[in-house]
């Protein structure tokens, strides 16, 4: 019961825009299970949507893992992975308004603001791994 890595990990491949919708639904279900408030649910689902679209558009597809984590508080962890080109200048990519894909440039930077924990591991040619956590208040 106290195992901190969490439970019920769900994996979703991201290869089409329908998969992004499925990721949103998975994260929503997990957020409800983790007893996040409505606003926090909305925030983490929105963040996951932004990041899953990045995985699809920039990473050329990948996979997303969603799980409920229980430590002192409960929360939702979303891990995204792709084997795409990776990000060269991470600091620049995390700047509001910076985009290479014709978007609004709010995906990465905005998603980071919406969650409590944000980790990114990327390098050119090595793909991108992002892990986010939103805790129940």
């Amino acid at each position: 019961m106290t195992g901190d890595p969490g439970e019920e990990a769900q994996t979703q491949a991201v290869v089409s825009d329908q998969d992004v919708v499925r990721v949103r639904q998975l994260v929503r279900t997990a957020a409800v299970t983790a007893k996040l408030s409505l606003v926090d649910q909305t925030k983490v689902v929105t963040a996951a949507s932004e990041l899953a679209r990045n995985t699809l558009v920039y990473g050329g597809g990948g996979s997303v893992q969603v799980r409920v984590v229980r430590q002192r508080r409960s929360g939702v962890r979303v891990e995204l992975a792709d084997d795409g080109p990776g990000i060269g200048d991470l600091e620049l990519a995390l700047t509001d308004g910076y985009t290479t894909g014709g978007g609004l440039g709010l995906g990465l930077s905005g998603a980071r603001r919406l969650v409590d924990e944000f980790e990114i591991d990327t390098a050119p040619g090595r793909g991108t791994r992002i892990s986010i956590v939103k805790w129940a208040r």
């Binding site: 409505l38 606003v39 649910q41 909305t42 925030k43 929105t46 932004e50 509001d96 609004l104 709010l106 930077s109 905005g110 998603a111 603001r113 919406l114």
Partner: peptide, 14 residues
């Protein structure tokens, strides 16, 4: 627009 959506959009920077 729902309140939770509006709050999230503001946080997102949109």
């Amino acid at each position: 627009m729902r309140p939770a959506v509006a709050i999230t959009l503001v946080e997102l920077g949109l």
